[in-house]
Design a protein around this nucleic acid. Structure first.
Length: 531
RNA sequence: GCGGGCGUAGCUCAGUGGUAGAGCGCCACCUUGCCAAGGUGGAUGUCGUGAGUUCGAAUCUCAUCGCCCGCUCCA
């Protein structure tokens, strides 16, 4: 049952389990204990992902006149990311408040004056807790008591739950005993210190750099540094001029790219939803400044229809119109497209109007003009850009979550049975058709089934299975979302009803219904349904 | 990164200091004329990893890795 807040952890657990059991998704390096925030796609996951990327490419590049594809490098020059603002701007040293655990940007802590009370540790009934702590008080006369109370809290928080219970018991007994005593070390007056949290006077931890990009070395000596790209977008901006010059294309037009990006996320969470290595499907759509806002709305609609086409219904999507003040400073309009995952409503894609920020910074950074000259209006200007940027792995997860279904069936005897089925759209399904001989001991059935496998394999992913009863094989295919199964049976051989010779049973995943079909009609029938 | 919870077979889990288990799944054979049938047999684990305590550790201690939840972060 889903909670009010749209979360359903039990459902999510079943999905994760199925994904591993049937080979959709594995944790990277699992054999060695696992690598945090990195995932591998198994055989079926790889098929599903390829289908999604192919479908996106077809809809975005192949079926449009105004979008061209490219495939940029992952290794990225430092200068590119300096211009874009990724280097420098987004690796601020952070300090953490030792009392409240709040994290502050070290360079934004205001300078303060006052008296510092240093504690070298604490005494828990003779046992020494050896951790330094300090409190800054702005009123030296009263400061020591306040400081001591805060120090007490700091050391209390550091205790194990059992020790905390123990200390609490004594405190409540009102015996005047302090079982936990901060050990006062020294006091000093300071001017302009930035090592203390202005909110509570607590000592801050040493500033730490939070490196949000992956850096690597290049060249024989390794002196040159490069970064793994944090987004696919930058290579598009950097190659904008080359694409424009090498293709006879006019504004407005877009450049699309699918590829890996890397962010050293502080805290990867929610299965493959937020990972450190992930794949993006991005479009940078360049246009005249006057058209930016209108095109942003148009792209939002285009993208929403895309999700509908791949099987994510509109009512499960939420559009978040990011208000003024919460958008990136360069963006004039941003929509987040969010999906109701079992762990909450989370972003699938952002459609952002980025103005001319990106081309602007690269034009300045590289010192080369990136302006566009419009022959008709004789205008020269820096194009604006609308960026629909989708997370490929997130969409995969949404597809699986949306497809996952547990259907309760009741047989003739009234016995209940749960059928697990992934209701993928056929175009996305990792396997399009399962092919079975009714009985694997029947050589003729096996021969024909193998022949069907061979003829269909050129066109689509198929799965041949002769293990166990046919009903079990149907259910195995249901569980990985195969939309159709073909069974070669005794009618195929024309044993009792000669008029059925050369026909097979086609079984539908969603309805479990069956129909008979000529073997020769299979390929066109399937091709019509699996694209 | 912080706090809490957890880690035993492919999956779900039982096992609180004394010979590692169950259900499901998987493999083989038999059986099987259309929706997880049945029978027989079988494989699978350094009990996340590494140290320590102990005569003896899945079990106790420490460290480490990973997962989940809450903060935090998310260009």
């Amino acid at each position: 049952m889903a909670n009010k807040d749209h979360t359903d952890p039990a459902r999510m657990e079943k999905i994760v389990s199925l994904c591993k059991r049937r080979g959709f998704i594995f944790q990277a390096g699992e054999l060695y204990g696992g690598l945090n925030g990195v995932w591998d796609y198994g055989p079926l996951g790889a098929e599903l992902k390829r289908n999604l990327k192919d479908f996106w490419w077809r809809k975005t590049v192949q079926e449009r006149d105004d979008v061209l594809g490219m495939d940029g490098s992952i290794l990225t020059m430092e200068q590119v990311l300096v211009s874009s603002g990724h280097v420098g701007g987004f690796s601020d040293p952070m300090s953490e408040c030792m009392l409240s655990k709040v994290r502050l940007r070290a360079d934004q802590v205001p300078a303060q004056n006052g008296r510092i009370y240093w504690y070298s540790g604490a005494d828990l009934l003779g046992r020494k807790i050896d951790r330094e702590f300090a409190v800054l008080a702005n009123f030296p006369k009263e400061g020591r008591n306040q400081a001591e109370a805060k120090a007490f809290r700091f050391y209390f928080d550091a205790l194990s739950p059992e020790e905390q219970e123990f200390v609490k018991k004594f405190a409540n007994d009102n015996e005047g005993l302090k079982t936990l005593k901060p050990i006062f070390d020294r006091e000093e007056d300071v001017v302009d210190t930035t090592r203390f949290n202005p909110a509570n006077g607590s000592l801050l931890s040493e500033p730490r750099d939070f490196e949000l990009m992956f850096k690597t070395n290049m060249g024989a000596t390794g002196d040159a540094i490069a970064y793994l790209r944090p987004e696919t977008a930058q290579s598009i901006f950097v190659q904008f001029k080359n694409v424009l010059d090498s293709n006879r294309i006019k504004l407005p037009f877009g450049i699309a790219q699918i590829g890996k990006s890397f962010r050293n996320e502080i805290n990867p969470r929610n299965y493959i939803f937020r990972s450190r290595e992930f794949e993006q499907m991005e479009i940078e759509y360049f246009c005249h400044p006057d058209d930016g806002l209108r095109l942003t709305d148009e792209w939002l609609e285009t993208r929403l229809s895309f999700y509908e086409e791949i099987g994510i219904p509109r009512e499960k999507l939420h559009i978040n119109d990011i208000p003024d003040g919460e958008r990136a400073f360069y963006s004039k309009k941003t929509y987040d497209i969010e999906y109701e995952f079992p762990f909450g409503v989370q972003e699938l894609e952002g459609v952002a109007y980025r103005t001319d920020y990106d081309l602007g910074v690269h034009q300045k950074g590289a010192g080369k003009p990136l302006e566009y000259f419009d022959e008709e209006t004789k205008q020269r200007f820096l194009p604006h850009v609308v960026e629909p940027s989708a997370g490929c792995d997130r969409t995969i997860l949404a597809l699986i979550c949306e497809a996952f279904d547990e259907e309760t069936l009741t047989d003739d005897k009234g016995k209940e049975d749960v059928r697990t089925v992934l209701r993928f759209k056929p175009a996305l399904a990792p396997v399009k058709v399962g092919i079975f001989p009714l009985l694997k001991k029947n050589e003729e059935q096996v021969r024909i089934a193998r022949g069907i496998q061979k003829s269909l394999q050129k066109w689509m992913t198929v799965s041949y299975d002769d293990g166990g009863a046919v009903g079990r094989r149907y259910r195995r295919q249901d569980e990985v979302g195969t939309p159709f199964c073909v069974t070669v049976d005794f009618e195929t051989l024309g044993e009792e009803k000669p008029e059925l010779k050369g026909t097979v049973t086609v079984r539908h995943r969603d309805s479990m219904e069956q129909e008979r079909m000529e073997i020769s009609a299979l390929l066109p029938w399937l091709l019509e349904r699996v694209r």
